[in-house]
Design a protein around this nucleic acid. Sequence first.
DNA 1: GATGTAAACATGTTTATAAT
DNA 2: ATTATAAACATGTTTACATC
Lengths: 455, 455
Amino acid sequence: MAHLPMDRASEHTLSAQQTESSSPDSIYQLNSLQPYNPSHQAEHWPRFRSHQAMIMAPLHQPCFPNPFVVDHGQYESNANNTHHYQDGQAAYLDNLCPPSRPDPTMANPCMASFTSEGRRQLEVHSDWTGLQPSPVFKVDEICEFPTHLPFVHAVQNTPPSPLSTISSYESPESLAVASPTMTVQTVDQFSPGSSEDDREDQPGPTPYSHLIFRALKEAKDNKLPLQGIYNWFERNTDKAKSSGSKGWQNSIRHNLSMNAGFEAVKEELGPGKKAVNFWRLTPEAIRHGQVQSTTRYRKQASARKVLGANARAVQRQRTEIKGGNSLKAVKTRHPNTSCDEPNEIYHRQPMILSSCPVDDHYPRPDPQMMPHYISPALAPPIDNALQRYGMDSVIGCTNLPPAHNGSFYDSMRATLDNESFAPRPAAHAGWYASPSDHNIAMMTGSDAPVDLHHF
Amino acid sequence: MAHLPMDRASEHTLSAQQTESSSPDSIYQLNSLQPYNPSHQAEHWPRFRSHQAMIMAPLHQPCFPNPFVVDHGQYESNANNTHHYQDGQAAYLDNLCPPSRPDPTMANPCMASFTSEGRRQLEVHSDWTGLQPSPVFKVDEICEFPTHLPFVHAVQNTPPSPLSTISSYESPESLAVASPTMTVQTVDQFSPGSSEDDREDQPGPTPYSHLIFRALKEAKDNKLPLQGIYNWFERNTDKAKSSGSKGWQNSIRHNLSMNAGFEAVKEELGPGKKAVNFWRLTPEAIRHGQVQSTTRYRKQASARKVLGANARAVQRQRTEIKGGNSLKAVKTRHPNTSCDEPNEIYHRQPMILSSCPVDDHYPRPDPQMMPHYISPALAPPIDNALQRYGMDSVIGCTNLPPAHNGSFYDSMRATLDNESFAPRPAAHAGWYASPSDHNIAMMTGSDAPVDLHHF
DNA sequence: GATGTAAACATGTTTATAAT
DNA sequence: ATTATAAACATGTTTACATC
Ligand SMILES: [Mg+2]
Ligand SMILES: [Mg+2]
């Protein structure tokens, strides 16, 4: 108990039915899992929370029959038709999506508002002009698991090297903009019966980033909420099964956040409802059929130029065992990897910055991620924004300044909005962004580039 | 230590320079606040993370001189010009914003993508067509604290009843869509030298929701990141000063989340950078110059119709002292409130649902919030969606189903995307929303409406 | 009723560290 | 080098409860 982490209680010892943050170590939560039924009321039906929504859906009738007003019975009659298989390796659902139709709304006009800085400020929201009184049952319009079909227990006898076939689905540029047809095109590729984790075509287990890519690739509009990704993992991988902890959820979030191939998008699903966050594949990831390495923080020795007095340290323990590339290798170790290899073989020669043109971020459409390919491109001139531009999606790290580091924010205060400048640098830097100054992504590092590209 | 909460460690005992989650009870964090300097690199400049951004900013040059590439020295020379006053009641900044200009981008066209369900899927992002190489110093364009002006220690001798004057700023409808001029119009109203907390014109301290409203009202585009709201509170209220804890930040977040007058918007500030979340006043709040009560959960006795087997209980301790309307009343108690009043006087007659037309959500533009006014409108027919529609922004609660309650999700599984349906209902319901089914906001309450309106 | 406060919890971001 | 894992932390949502 002395070394109990403050957050999530190491995410261990939780049953599969418990959420990640159940915090079993909390004395408030031990042995007290009785059902709780708060009554959320809301017998009124609010309008869109944003004014843009009203403008962007000009045909929306303020008094149309609200599609949300449905009785419980309808849902109950449908609730049992979707089954969830978790009992074993062969427990996968057939992904029987109807063929897609061209999206008639792709060319629709829209409204947008603009910030005073000229930023277009657009809101994700639903289009309510075409809603039916109870579109819940308009299953023909959505790619959904068919509840009327018998369930298929697919045996995992056909692992079709899923990621290696993604390159054959080089999507046209037109599909890069939220194309719904992309989903159905790829649905058969990711054969639902194949266990991508611990597959035969690749040594070791499939990385999380690959699996997330697959989950989103299969999803409609290439996006899913976090819970949907969790569910996909539970149904299609062993990550969720292989341990009683919820570390796999942590890993999913980690990869979602750190890998530039996944972006969070907010979508307003109804009037007055809070927007829902989705994780979506970036167009680059869709176009290239892969995501790049979830590159992350690399330690740098040099301190920043400006170190504010408020600089805080990230307090970390130092002796915990935090995993590694093959903490599960004891059960999935591949024969071609030797346990006696020196560590130096994992440290390749330093990558060089990519000097590829903008439209050539993925010069090598290698179907397998990170083949340790070193780009033959020469080291580009440093500080050449022309060549650096457009390289984010190929690397996991963003160009945001480091969190918990006073150097960034202290030096940026004067450039921020009068209410936005932070007296202390305490949060992830992205949230320090000022509405009045876009140029908050200054480089805090004066060292040579440490995030390098394989291309 | 035995009763240490699992999250945020009660947010106590933290100095003002510490962030809320510093968790002083953690053994990992005690007495170890040394500066930390991770080097975030990113010498490359990525493109927009979303494809929409490329479309929506068609003039954007992929190779334009990146405005982010600025050297540290520039920022350092400016960093010390913004001062932060926290030492006392009179420590407020003059809010000297330049007069606003009409936003030339208000009528600009935009692009939008659409989901396969027809939802318009728009992304907040920056418009890079007009960027200067170093717009950091284009102070003339932004409403910013003038670093070149001498600082004014305004004595709080002019508390101009700030909220009561908001009604005089009934904004035209055109301003409801992210109008930058709104900010400057109201800037003088919220006199910077006035201490809104513990003001004279209102009994007791100003509610958080009012203060947040003011902070956002003053901000450009009526939006601020969370840290900006924190900063505003530190400079303009006593909430942050009155205690060494960070409970005031918790209260701010609580109000932001629960009050429908505040909405989170995501804005992409640069190519490849993570989107920044802002909190923005809803157009309704702007239009009516106020936000409504941060109505929140009200206990209901009746259980939901469908209670899934996975229904989880929210584990709460029961004996903690959790505040109240006047935990600070010992120092700010108003003479007209008696401590001997029975509790019954705080329970007014039940509010009735508003039957106002859609454009009349605020039939009484009362400048003071919640005057306990009961709408004379007759009780509308229950289940009439026409009359319930459009009432969200006037009440703090949304129509989302309750979290930690299996009833909603269990009954909605069949309507969700095949990857989105959750095997367990464990999170806030908004994140369970399926991309393929918008109708997730079904009513879980079968009781009479409990969220009622004053209008 | 409204409000403040605490807290549980989910979600998102980042750093640390070990294995390979 | 990539990857998995743990964890700290920030942010966002919701419920509980005390006070008036
Ligand atoms: Mg990401
Ligand atoms: Mg809100």
